[in-house]
């Protein structure tokens, strides 16, 4: 089993086997590896292990986490990596790779959400459209649906589809085969991914696209 060896000023203090998916490091008493030193944050870092691979994650500590002298927020550990937390250090001793463990790695495994990192998921963003010209100028709508169709039959119709965090503009029909534009350029027949700040034109109406926290 892989392990971390804790040392202080060159003296080895203790071995910690990485025997669960998440081993936490910090000053608070409920950490798996508790380091009572003021340079260490309450919840400083964690090591996540999946089969034979371990990953070090800094949990937003005040003084940071170094690996081989470089600050990291997340790092795939290699045997011999030297982790510095405050004035303490931890050395990572990984497993020897054998043909057998390599073969095992091929098999798909699924992890439960609880076993995943405790970091906050990225803030969900929602797309908004704001009309920039004509009588409806200033009006706004939120693009909450999987697909929103926009435009005027006979003139130009387009759809905006949501793929999880991303939005795509797609042509449906238009007079003389004209397609909607993004920042003045016709999009053609492939869906185009929208970026915050893009200006769309559909059926002669100009629309500003924005991504904002939901």
């Amino acid at each position: 089993m892989a392990k971390l060896v804790l040392s202080f000023q060159g003296r080895v203090l203790e071995d910690f086997p990485l025997d669960k998916e998440r081993v936490t490091i910090g000053r608070a008493a409920d950490n798996d590896i508790c380091i009572e030193n003021l340079a260490v944050s309450g919840r400083h870092a964690a090591v996540e292990t999946f089969q034979n691979d371990s990953y070090l994650v800094d949990l937003g500590s005040t003084n940071g986490t170094l690996v081989n002298g470089n600050p990291v927020t997340r790092h795939a550990l290699r045997s011999g990596d030297y982790i510095t937390i405050g004035k303490h250090s931890l050395t990572y001793h990984g497993l020897q790779r054998t043909a057998e463990t390599d073969d095992e790695v091929e098999k798909t495994i699924a992890i439960r959400p609880a076993m995943r990192s405790a970091e906050a998921a990225p803030v969900a963003l929602l797309g908004y459209l704001r009309v920039q010209n004509g009588g409806a100028a200033g009006r706004e709508m939120v693009l909450s649906k999987a697909q929103t169709k926009l435009g005027k039959a006979g003139l130009q119709v387009a759809a905006i589809s949501r793929r999880q965090q991303d939005y795509y503009l797609e042509h449906i029909e238009g007079q003389d085969g004209r397609t909607p534009t993004i920042n003045g350029v016709q999009i053609g027949l492939q869906p185009r991914k929208l970026a915050h700040g893009d200006i769309l034109e559909i059926a002669n109406t100009r629309l500003g696209f924005e991504l904002r926290p939901a």
């Binding site: 999946f50 089969q51 034979n52 795939a76 790695v105 798909t108 495994i109 699924a110 992890i111």
Partner: peptide, 8 residues
Amino acid sequence: KNKNVITR
């Protein structure tokens, strides 16, 4: 190396 780990 952990390409085989699925989260759902």
